[in-house]
Design a protein around this nucleic acid. Structure first.
Length: 263
DNA sequence: AAACGAATCAACCGCATGTCT
DNA sequence: CAGACATGCGGTTGATTCGTT
């Protein structure tokens, strides 16, 4: 038997998120947190798969995200971490508070790689190109379409050597970025520094430029407590979620949802 | 002003990993 | 231990924006 798809793709919306969808997702996650992503779109009233919701939240809507270009310090840190960890973007992102793996990956591919090349360094090995590559014309990274294969092979190479190093790194340094990692508990932990910028950029980047009525930033600080308490009430239908909890618990029973998990 | 190519970045896809039964 | 499932991760794609001619 094959693996089940992450969601039923029939009738699900794809492509760029609208302001309305963003608003629904943010409003839902801020008031309820998330239990399992597969249920989030149903509970939030979105025609998206859970995966898509998670991605949108972690990469774009999370209130603790910084926006804008990486600072010089951040960029240096990324380069340094990349030299140690390879293409483990999530590990790198965990060290940069408010940055996402996707953002760092994009920044690496568009900016840093070029910079390193200009400096005569191989962006993969971080060694001078002459030393690491005999024939620059054969450089597979000149062709973006070959790049993926090259980098995945190379990152596999990193993978063999990086784990011990990575563990040392992880244990040695204070996890400043841990609050921004993708762990369940931290996913909705806001920081005061960036909620407004997240709101601004989210609405700015919304297709059509429509403004969104974002929640008061002060509300963001209540989310952790909400996560602890509100899923039980929403799913039992007795709490702030109102009817939605009852309806959706019924709906979700057919996907193996166990109410007791959230009680 | 229009056309074109390059650059950027949000979003998707498929696989890997972790957890539970 | 094996299978099922949910989530996370990294690579890639494609739409949009920007810069140049």
């Amino acid at each position: 038997m094959g693996r089940q798809p992450c969601c039923e793709k029939v009738g699900l919306k794809k492509g760029p998120w609208t302001a309305e969808e963003d608003q629904k997702l943010v409003a839902f996650l801020l008031s309820h947190g998330h239990c399992c992503w597969r249920l989030v779109p149903k509970l939030a009233g979105l025609l998206r798969c859970g995966k898509s919701c998670r991605l949108r939240w972690t990469n774009y809507l999370r209130p603790d995200l910084k926006r804008g270009l990486l600072s010089d310090d951040e960029e240096k840190l990324v380069i340094d971490l990349h030299s140690q960890l390879g293409n483990r973007w999530s590990k790198i992102a965990a060290r940069l508070p408010g940055r996402t793996d996707n953002e760092i990956k994009n920044h690496w591919n568009t900016h840093i790689r070029k910079k390193l090349k200009k400096m005569g360094l191989d962006p993969v090995t971080h060694q001078p190109v002459a030393a690491s590559r005999a024939d620059p014309l054969q450089d597979p990274q000149q062709d973006p379409h070959c790049d993926g294969k090259a980098s995945s092979q190379e990152s596999a190479g990193y993978g063999t050597g990086a784990s011990a190093e990575e563990e040392a790194l992880t244990s040695a340094e204070p996890k400043q970025g841990a609050t921004c990692s993708a762990s369940t508990a931290s996913a909705v932990s806001p920081s005061p520094c960036s909620s407004s910028s997240a709101s601004a950029s989210a609405s700015a980047a919304t297709p059509g430029g429509a403004d969104v009525d974002w929640p008061d930033p002060l509300d963001l600080f209540q989310v952790d407590a909400i996560i602890d308490m509100d899923w039980a009430s929403i799913l039992s239908g007795s709490g702030g979620g109102g009817d939605i909890g009852v309806d959706l618990f019924d709906q979700c029973s057919d996907v193996g949802f166990d109410q007791e998990v959230w009680m």
